[in-house]
């Protein structure tokens, strides 16, 4: 307050720190994008020229498209299941107060705090023992179950934030007008909390899409994209992995921006409605 110069230095220092962190976060991402166009099989710097060959080579790999398909299937299924479960959990959490609520909350959040590799290992043991009894193997269903356990708490948080601003007197009004519980849910409640749900769906999809640790234990003979990349880079580096990374970035960035837009619009609408009332 008294010394404008130190204040100014403090402002610059703090903002600079944040920007430096942002640069730090993007160092490997930019590096990958750069090397995906570099015309050299060994990934060293400086580079000779630029090429799009690595993208072609990536699609010519016979095991790339199956991995892409598995990843997409698992991510979509995880997204659907965890969104339904997470929305139920969020409603339970925000709307009701009942015995055992705290215990239930702690239990539903524990999977996030659990080291993922260990969660994967425990599920692997579980499925292996059950598999010998009921005769099934690891594969896409076990992948989906593992991802759902891990992703659902994230969905709960995002939907719960949306529910916090939800004005439930509208539901009462619909009920007074003679609507059944089901119609209230489908025509009033779901459309009003939809922005939060769709943002949560995008988050769920991306968390499943990029998951490595759980897939590593639960994939059986199936490969998701992160497993495809991991098994490639531990053997030796190749420019097809930067190419794959770059292809991965563009739709992911689009989805993140879309999720943020939906969330923001919903928040604006809620605060707008609150202002009109008062």
């Amino acid at each position: 307050m008294r010394n404008p110069l130190t204040n100014r230095l403090l402002d610059i220092g703090l903002s600079g720190w944040m920007i430096a962190l942002l640069v730090f976060l993007y160092i490997p991402i930019v590096t990958l994008a750069f090397f995906s166009f570099a015309d050299s099989r060994v990934l060293t710097f400086p580079v000779q020229g630029f090429t799009l060959n690595w993208y072609r080579e990536l699609f010519e790999r016979p095991d790339f498209l199956p991995a892409l398909r598995t990843s997409a299937l698992v991510a979509v299924a995880t997204m659907l299941v965890s969104t339904v479960l997470g929305t139920c959990g969020a409603i339970l959490w925000m709307r009701y107060r009942f015995r055992f609520k705290q215990a239930l909350q702690a239990l539903t959040f524990l999977p996030v705090l659990f080291p993922q590799l260990l969660l994967g290992v425990m599920l692997l043991l579980w499925f292996s023992v059950l598999g010998t009894v009921f005769d099934f193997r690891l594969g896409i269903p076990t992948l989906i179950i593992g991802h759902v356990i891990y992703v659902t708490p994230f969905v709960m948080i995002i939907v719960a934030v949306q529910l916090y601003g939800f004005d439930d007197t509208v539901e009462d009004a619909a009920r007074d007008a003679g609507a059944s519980d089901w119609r209230v849910l489908v025509e009033i409640t779901l459309p009003m909390i939809w922005p939060g749900i769709s943002a949560a769906m995008i988050m769920a999809f991306l968390l499943s899409w990029g998951n490595f640790y759980l897939s590593y234990s639960l994939n059986g003979s199936m490969r998701t994209l992160p497993i495809f990349i991991y098994s490639g880079i531990t053997v030796g580096s190749s420019p097809i992995y930067p190419a794959l990374a770059t292809l991965n970035f563009i739709p992911a960035m689009g989805l993140v921006v879309l999720a943020d837009f939906l969330r923001r619009r919903a928040l604006r609408r809620d605060t707008g409605a609150a202002k009109e009332e008062s």
Partner: peptide, 26 residues
Amino acid sequence: ILIIFSFLTDAVLKTFGWVLVLDRNG
């Protein structure tokens, strides 16, 4: 948004990105 995007990017890829940065000839 920038932070969330970098956070949600595949961890295997980001870790591999560091290999390219830290390599002796990187």
